[in-house]
């Protein structure tokens, strides 16, 4: 095709249209992505009372339930530790074996020591821990706040 010389008028017209379409498209796509991707929420925590400080002798654990999930409260020499009772392998519930001072998962023979570290078996990472706060001889853990309603 023969190269036609563009008039200034039609050049400016084309430039106007193209930049308007470009800007509209970019902002439109940005807005649609914002609509589709839910914003990341800041996690909120609240304190949850799990034990009195002198309730358990050193080397003992107790099992409690938080939001239908088992949680182990263990008193060590260093202080209290609180672990999620859900095995990090495939989600079975672990047991506390006091005589061996360890956690045992019956599903695939995963073993965790009293610090929650993997000793043997298939679990890929240590047990999940809660942050422990001791105030006025009471032991609390930080529990993540889950907003209610269907859109949580």
């Amino acid at each position: 095709m023969e190269q036609e010389k563009q008039s200034r008028r039609s050049f400016l017209f084309n430039l106007g249209i193209i930049s308007a379409v470009f800007l509209a498209t970019v902002t439109f796509i940005r807005d649609v992505i914002a609509y589709l991707v839910p914003p990341r929420k800041k996690k909120k925590f609240h304190k949850y009372l799990v034990a009195e400080e002198l309730e358990l002798p050193v080397g003992q654990a107790k099992e409690i339930t938080i939001s239908k999930k088992p949680v182990f409260v263990v008193r060590l020499k260093e202080g209290y530790k609180v672990y999620s009772g859900v095995c990090t392998h495939l989600g079975c519930i672990i047991h506390w074996e006091e005589d061996k001072q360890r956690f045992y998962c019956p599903c695939h023979k995963g073993v965790f020591d009293k610090y929650g570290n993997v000793v043997s078996g298939p679990p890929p990472r240590p047990l999940d821990q809660f942050e422990v706060i001791v105030e006025n001889r009471l032991v609390y853990i930080q529990v993540e706040e889950k907003p209610g309603g269907p859109w949580a």
């Binding site: 807005d31 609509y35 269907p150």
Partner: peptide, 19 residues
Amino acid sequence: MAFESVRHITEDVRLGFWV
């Protein structure tokens, strides 16, 4: 859920009111 989900779109979802 219909009314609640329309409310959710309009009030909670980012730019939902716009869509």
